[in-house]
């Protein structure tokens, strides 16, 4: 058996007459680009960016689960306050503004790094941090205020779902801030290297993805909640 090549002759084996399901020239129409078709493995940068995209998609699926729970439980107020009675749209507008600005400066920081402008990168990241932290502060204030008014997460299923969905986004932002500080320190101590560039790329993808999720939170939770 070890001698596999001895298993001749193959001629007696009956093959598919039409070679069914096998394309005679399968694969030749594909692009020669690396990573797809016939070009061999992609570059490290593409692999890392792509992998992180896949992770982000999974994260968005997780948010989708929290969104659907919120949609189901929205009416489960158990005689307690509804969204329309609780939400302060002005505060939310401010939060949204801060988050969007932070995303913008984060983009600037990314460009600065690509152009090897250390100082602008660090300044951009610092601003990103400040706006992100301001967003978190506003959110924390909102949460504390709600709890004070007797509308904490244990009050009703609606509030449980609200605090979890919005809080999960807040937790992501907090983790992002930790990551952001780590990246600032890495660039400062290690300089601009390919792996650092890849990490900053992933961080900015993460940060922008949080914006996208926030847009959904803003629309589904706050806007639609206030109208209802």
């Amino acid at each position: 058996m070890t001698d596999a090549l001895a298993l001749q002759p193959q001629a007696r084996v009956r093959t598919d007459p039409n070679h069914l399901g096998h394309h005679a020239r399968a694969g030749e129409g594909h692009a020669k680009a690396t990573g797809r078709g016939t070009g061999g493995p992609s570059s490290k940068r593409i692999i890392v960016g792509y992998g992180f995209w896949i992770f982000l998609l999974s994260d968005i699926v997780m948010f989708a689960a929290f969104f659907s729970a919120y949609a189901v439980l929205q009416t489960g107020t158990a005689g307690g306050p509804t969204g329309a009675e609780l939400f302060d749209l002005q505060n939310v507008a401010l939060e949204t503004g801060f988050l969007l600005i932070s995303s913008f400066v984060c983009g600037v920081a990314g460009l600065a790094l690509a152009a090897k402008r250390h100082l602008i990168f660090q300044a951009g990241m610092a601003l990103t941090f400040l706006f992100g932290a301001a967003f978190l502060l506003l959110e924390a204030r909102e949460f504390l205020d709600l709890v004070d008014r007797g509308a904490g997460p244990t009050r009703s299923a609606f509030l449980s779902a609200f605090f979890t969905l919005v809080g999960c986004h807040g937790l992501h932002v907090s983790a992002g801030l930790l990551w952001l500080l780590t990246m600032m320190a890495q660039v400062a101590t290690k300089g601009i290297r390919p792996e650092i560039l890849r990490r900053v790329l992933c961080f900015s993808l993460f940060w922008h993805a949080l914006d996208i999720v926030w847009v959904a939170v803003f629309t589904v939770v706050y806007l639609m909640g206030s109208i209802a």
Partner: peptide
Amino acid sequence: PILTATLAMLILDRYLGFHFFTDEAGG
């Protein structure tokens, strides 16, 4: 991720008194 989210909801119910899946308070 759906499983993670679902079990997280059950954890919140059990640890912090949330009402995702309870039979009272709209769960």
